[in-house]
Structures are given as structure tokens and as C-alpha cells.
Amino acid sequence: MILPLIAAFSAGVLVILSRQVNGRMSMSSTPMISSFWNHVVGFVVLTLIGLLVGGLIPANISEMPWWIFTGGAIGVVFVASGSWLITRIGAVNSTLLVIAGQMVFGVIFDLLRGAPVTIWASALGIVLILAGMALTQRRR
């Protein structure tokens, strides 16, 4: 049980590590160039892993809905904006505001597509998040 705990925690650490490194890249280039390197390097690494493990491209790929191919396009914008943001508002603010947006839009998105949502917990969670956002915004 300790291994999955470490894996989940490390995944969060690596998300920030990646944003920090991409942010450094964008300081000496641009956020879009930094996003390009992030994707091309990730693609090479995942291709190598895929070749090692095998079965990278599933047989049913032609039957998948077209929109699953749009995730990468959204990712390019997200990574570029992350590099742009971290050099301006810092790591903590980036992390908190991105998580805040992810949660609030996640709840809205779930409501819109009719997924089950526990209203009291989601509403209270959103109130706390908005209060925290107001706090990042207050003059020091």
C-alpha cells in the first residue's frame, strides 16, 4: 500500500517540477517554444516506453471518437500558459489557481453532463476555494 501512496504523491511533485522546468525554458525562449519541447520530449520518451512494453497503438483506434485527438491541442495551450504564468505569479500561486479552476470547472462540467455530484460538499468546497482565491488577491 505504501507504493501507490508514494506514486500518487510523486505524480503531484512531478507536475510542479515539470512546470518549473518548462518555466525556465520559457525564460530563455517563449512559452510556446517551451511547450513544444515539453511535448516532443514527452512523445519520444513515451514512444520508447511503448516500444519496450508493446501494444502502444490499440487495435480499436479507428473506432474511437474524433474528439479524443483534441486532448493534445488543449495540452499545448495549457503547458504554454503554465510557463507564462509561473514566471509571473510564482509556483504557489500558479498551483493554487490552476487547482482552483480545475475543481470549480470540474464541478460545473460534471453538473452539465449529468454526472452525479454531491451538492453540499461541492458547494462548500467551491466557497472555500473562492475564499482562498480572494486571499491570494489581497494587498500585502
Binding site: W67, I68, T70, G71, I74, G75, V77, F78, S81, G82, W84, L85, I89, N93, S94, L97, V98, I99, A100, G101, Q102, M103, V104, F105, G106, F109, M133, T136, Q137
Partner: peptide, 17 residues
Amino acid sequence: LLAAFASGGLLTLAIFV
């Protein structure tokens, strides 16, 4: 900060897709 918040929405979408 608003841009960061909005990019969290993009992340939600990307994670879903």
C-alpha cells in the same frame, strides 16, 4: 490569477478527453 484559474478549466477538459 484569472488566467491561471481559466487554465485550470482547460486542464479539466484535457483530463476528461
